[in-house]
Computed example of a mutant assay.
Amino acid sequence: MTRRADVALVTGTSSGMGLHTAVGLARAGLTVVATMRDTAKDAELRRAAAEAGVELDVRALDVTDPHQADAAVAAVVADHGGIDVLVNNAGRGAVATLEQLTDEQLQDQLDVNYLGVARLTRLVLPGMRAAGRGRVVTVTSVGGAVGQPFADAYCGAKFAVEGLMQSLAPVAASFGVVVSVVEPGAVASEFTANVHRADAGASDDDPYAGLLAAYLRRTAGAFDNAQTSQQAAEVIVEAATTDQPRFRWQTSAQAEQFVGLSLADLDGARVVGTTSTWIA
């Protein structure tokens, strides 16, 4: 009996890294279920798939909706026989310091970047555990290792999801399931267009205005030299398919260097000292 091709479920595929990851996994021979909140926005994905000569199963999935997530995973298992690879890519950014953030905005970051990831992962684990194999790859950020000014809610959610996945990794490995995180740095994509900005409607006497302006100038420079979504997606595909898996992946030399600030920073002075210069 011929074994079916591995099935990958990828979230957030309407553009950017998710789009290129879905196409890249299909080119690698996997059956790919590419999901997005609104399938009316699937034109770019379908065009990229056609140009690559691959087929994708495009479906609607809002990771913040528990009922839709449960139904989506059940439907993929019913239609394709299982889920061997989960790529948690859907995400959302926010630029604001804590005093500027409402409870609703904090919750929004957790819902998309943390709780949605936890929900999808929990849903696929029983099938992977029963099969004795599987991959869970979560796209976090360098902001999941290094806290950054005016990224309080975003980095908080990304720190949380990295802690979740690092805690899960050894337990999942006991059942043959590999858990990894991928940490992109600055990536040229539509992600930045969906970022909540604290300076929208800010008053002239905003005490944070000067600090935020300095941060935004520095960030604009970083994105001027950003890697492409396709380059970052190549690392995600490698993490999902390699014969030599590991827990943590960075998508560029710059991301590697930046994450190293925190991972070797036992007292926190290197990170705080470096990021303080961003708002000077």
Rank of each mutant, 00 (worst) to 15 (best):
T2L: 06
R3G: 07
A5P: 10
D6G: 15
S14E: 11
V23I: 15
A28K: 07
L30S: 00
A40N: 12
A40Q: 15
A40Y: 10
A48M: 03
V54F: 04
E55A: 14
V58D: 02
A60S: 13
T64K: 08
Q68M: 02
A69L: 13
I83G: 01
A90N: 04
R92E: 14
E99W: 10
E104F: 06
Q109Y: 04
L110W: 07
N113A: 01
L115N: 10
G116R: 11
R122H: 12
L125M: 12
A131K: 12
V136K: 01
V139S: 09
S141R: 07
S141I: 02
P149Q: 04
F150Y: 05
A151E: 08
A151M: 14
Y154V: 10
K158S: 04
G163P: 00
G163V: 15
V171H: 12
A172T: 07
S174H: 05
V178R: 06
P184L: 10
A186L: 13
V187A: 05
V187D: 05
F191T: 01
H196T: 11
A198K: 09
A202W: 15
L211Y: 11
A214S: 14
R218Y: 13
Q230L: 13
V235Q: 02
A239E: 01
A239G: 04
W249D: 11
E256F: 11
Q257E: 13
F258S: 04
V259C: 03
S262Q: 08
L263D: 02
L263M: 10
L263C: 05
A264S: 13
S276F: 12
S276W: 12
T277I: 11
T277F: 03
W278S: 03
